[in-house]
Design a protein around this nucleic acid. Sequence first.
DNA 1: ATGACACATTATATGTGA
Length: 272
Amino acid sequence: MRIATYNVNGVNGRLPVLLRWLALARPDVVCLQELKAPQDKFPEAALREAGYEAIWHGQSRWNGVAILSRSGTLHETRRGLPGDPLDEQSRYIEAAVGGVLVAGLYLPNGNPRPGPKFDFKLRWFERLHAHLAELVALDAPVVIAGDFNVMPTDRDVYVPERWRDDALFAPEVKAAYARLLEQGWTDALRHMHPDETIYTFWKYWRGAFERDAGLRIDHILLNPAAAARLVDADVDRRPRGWEKTSDHAPVWVELAPAARKTRSARRAKSAS
DNA sequence: ATGACACATTATATGTGA
């Protein structure tokens, strides 16, 4: 089962790129961020035509998240991150699909720092920490995928010195991400490629992609049950080189099929 | 320190992004 995350930077503006990539990569499940589309302007029909059903949480102009599936029905379990009834931004959506719980998120950018946007980012992180504490220990595999707007370490930034005070790289933000991992989540990309330079975002200007001057800010976290099934993970750099493309590239994980329960295991479970 | 570029809006300048 292949699960991907892709910050499309405008789901309608990028629809040709998104459809081309879906046809090429054929992921089973995809979390999208930065739809930049109100709820009724999501391209549901075009995606269905491409073989994907979808759930989405739109918002005019900014934010917006969706989950697509071509290989199993999406059973939505949550939209919106709990913990702040005043937060109306569309940044979190969660669904069960094919025996896996999948969450798609778009963490606040947080710039400028310091300031109210940065404070909102830290509070969002605290709410995420509280919610993920409930998910990490589930027996079912859980996959948290999205644009976290955090470079976790120096290795994830092309020139770390230029980003020290930025809201994507500030010590408080790196610490908040590290606290998530301490709950027991596996950073799938870093786990599969411990020593590589990996980027998922490149600015549009100054030939950043051609120079490979990028950032690693899109992440996929796995709870222990999902990590036990991790086969591979990588960045799909191909669509970043296309015309009229997003400034992010898709990130994906491949999970092995669930082990078939043995007769004795089923018996033990039903007896418990 | 600044800017490069691109998205959206019942737009034609502005806010946001990273």
